[in-house]
Computed example of a mutant assay.
Amino acid sequence: MQRYSYENLLDFSTRLLAAAGLPQDRAGLVASLFLEADLLGYSTHGLQRLPTNVEWLLNGETRRDGTHRVVASGRSCETWDAAFLPGPWITALAVDRACEMAEEAGIGTVAVRRAQHVACLASYLERATRRGMMIMITASTPTEAVVVPHGGLTRVFSCNPIAAGIPTDRDPMLIDTTAAMSAQGPLNRSYRLGRKLTVPMIVTGDGQVSDEPADFVERGGGILPVGGMEQGYKGFSLALLTEALSGALGGFGRSGQSGDSEANGVFVQAIDPDHFAGRETFTREMGWLADQCRASATAPGHAPVRVPGDRALALKRDQLENGVMLAATIADDIRPWVARLGIPFPEPGMPSQT
């Protein structure tokens, strides 16, 4: 791990995406969302995504220009067809639009189909919570099948992340999880580094549970749903729910899909507490609840309870002040595009203070 100035990484990433053909304003927003993932500690979905996104822009898999088409709309809901626009850019727009509708009607919902890969859902949460909104986001990849249903061995689902941002009277709660026992990023990183998985989360073709990432990457094993072999019905249920929200609602489900596109279906819903019992009441209640959790007794030798978002926001503050931590493998993956597009990669370290 080496630390880099946030500003230097943002400038570099923006310039690299722009050199690949993305308009400057879109490049800046996409770069900031990738970096937000790194700031919050989701390093497999941050700048790690730059090389793939640059390649998609150059070969035309990601649409550089134009905007989405509104397929259906109502007072508090819209369905968009993104037609392979950059996933982070269109998802940020969907969050903003959902918040606008929630301010007007109490709830705003946007279903997006055919968004290019949206990366880390946690990156979008503070975009809503800073406006006092509660936000929920989920996504699926209809052409991707890597997760098995509970009791099965056949891959059916994508990993289907689920995220929520909940404002409190202090820091927001930031939830980012998945219906599967793991996203693909950590699995692929463990495979690349020759490491076993932290827990057995792969089921092999003969029904054995494995902690070897090669059983997934090389031998076609499936990722178990949350709950594993014993209680995987929990993750299985969440996978079905997220498919309904991010796929079927927007008309971008699994039936009839083919190819290897990473285009996502995305569901975004914003809720304005002012239209219910009031924002002050809501944030005070959730802040009190968070404090009760943190104050919970723990077993001897165990760390205090953390509320979702505590670690991520502390890490973000540290990295903004002291530099963003990047693994050498991430920089190595980016460097071929540095050479090809002529955008210099920043040097490690923070700018000197004068």
Rank of each mutant, 00 (worst) to 15 (best):
I334K: 02
R284W: 08
L93N: 01
R284C: 12
S5H: 06
I162F: 09
W80Q: 01
A122I: 04
N8S: 13
A180I: 13
G60S: 08
W288L: 15
E285W: 13
E103A: 14
I166Q: 02
T283L: 04
S237M: 07
A20V: 12
M133N: 03
I175Y: 09
R114V: 01
P200Q: 10
T67F: 04
L240P: 03
L17H: 03
V112I: 09
A105C: 10
V209S: 05
Q24S: 13
P351H: 02
L187V: 09
D310F: 10
P186G: 10
E144K: 10
G66P: 08
R195H: 11
P213A: 05
E144P: 12
G250S: 05
A111D: 00
G152I: 15
E104Y: 15
V146C: 11
S158C: 09
Y42C: 07
K316F: 05
Q292S: 08
Y42V: 14
E218A: 07
S296P: 11
S43C: 10
H117G: 00
Y233M: 15
F276G: 08
A270E: 01
A179F: 03
E7F: 13
R64N: 01
P273Y: 10
E126V: 12
V217E: 02
A105D: 04
G106K: 05
A290R: 11
Q292Y: 08
Q269V: 07
G205C: 12
D274N: 08
D272M: 05
Q353N: 08
D215G: 10
M173S: 11
P86Y: 00
E243N: 05
G207A: 04
T109L: 10
T67P: 06
Q257G: 06
A180L: 06
A295W: 09
T178H: 13
I107V: 13
A163D: 00
R49I: 02
M350N: 04
A339T: 12
P167K: 00
L35H: 00
M350V: 13
N264I: 00
A290W: 15
R131N: 07
T283S: 11
G250M: 02
I223R: 14
E36M: 07
W89H: 08
G227S: 07
M325S: 11
L9A: 03
Q292L: 15
E262I: 13
M1P: 09
G21M: 06
M286G: 07
V203F: 15
S158R: 03
G21D: 02
H117N: 00
P23E: 01
G106A: 04
T67R: 05
L326I: 07
A277G: 14
G349P: 06
W337L: 06
K196Q: 08
A299W: 12
C120E: 02
P300I: 07
S258K: 11
L241M: 12
E321Y: 01
S73H: 10
T198F: 14
F84C: 11
I137G: 00
N8L: 14
M286S: 09
L249D: 02
D291L: 15
C159E: 06
T52N: 11
D81P: 14
F276Y: 13
V30C: 03
